[in-house]
Amino acid sequence: MSGHSRLVELVPLYALDALDPSEAASLESHLEDCEACRAELDVHRNVAAQLVPDEPPAIHVWDRIEAAISQGDEGEVIDFGAERARRRGNPFNWMLATAAVVALVFAGVLVGQRLAFDGLSTDEGVVAAAESAAEEPGALVGDFLVDDVAVARVVLSKDGLGYVIPTDALDTLDPSRTYQLWVLTPDEVAISAGVLGADPGPATFTWKGDIAGFALTREVAGGVVSSAGDVVSVILDT
């Protein structure tokens, strides 16, 4: 049985989120290149949606949504804490505990090094700017590691302009998912620095203020206000 004919059989189960993670990952990788399977997935997802009853929406949940998006639009801090912390302990510490922790280093330590590690994604302008920013005095540079392999490098200049440069080692996610970058502050708050997409390229963000580290997580497409805790990697400023 060819790869396609084996994997296409998994599509209806994937549409119901009924595959185990390893099978889902194989199919996701196949979906990137197979329009026929993507089209079949669309059909099954539409079928599944038709099975769900249209019930009246709850007004009090809208109030929560409205409050959350108003907070986001005003650029206020999005806190991991409060309600969720009460439920499952301090999520900042929990986030650190669930991921490989790597030290952030100051750029001065990297004198002579370039960001030209193998597998760097193409988008030369951003990459060049990140390389240049990494060499400025006071810049912070760190690598997100997964099993000791760099999946992305983060550079934050003294002026507050940040760059995240994924490598080819960063897995592509299903289109319904996204990578999200978080700034970890010294007062133990994780603030979203940006939604990077399912297949991130070099990207920029801004951050002004004290910083304890960065976290990279996997979230639903579009990003979230508080992470579900699917942490890819954490960088800590030690």
Binding site: V61, R64, I65, I69, G222, G223, V224
Partner: peptide
């Protein structure tokens, strides 16, 4: 539900 709609609003 909240996360779904906030995610949709953001993207």
């Amino acid at each position: 539900v909240q996360e779904t709609f906030v995610s949709f609003w953001n993207s």
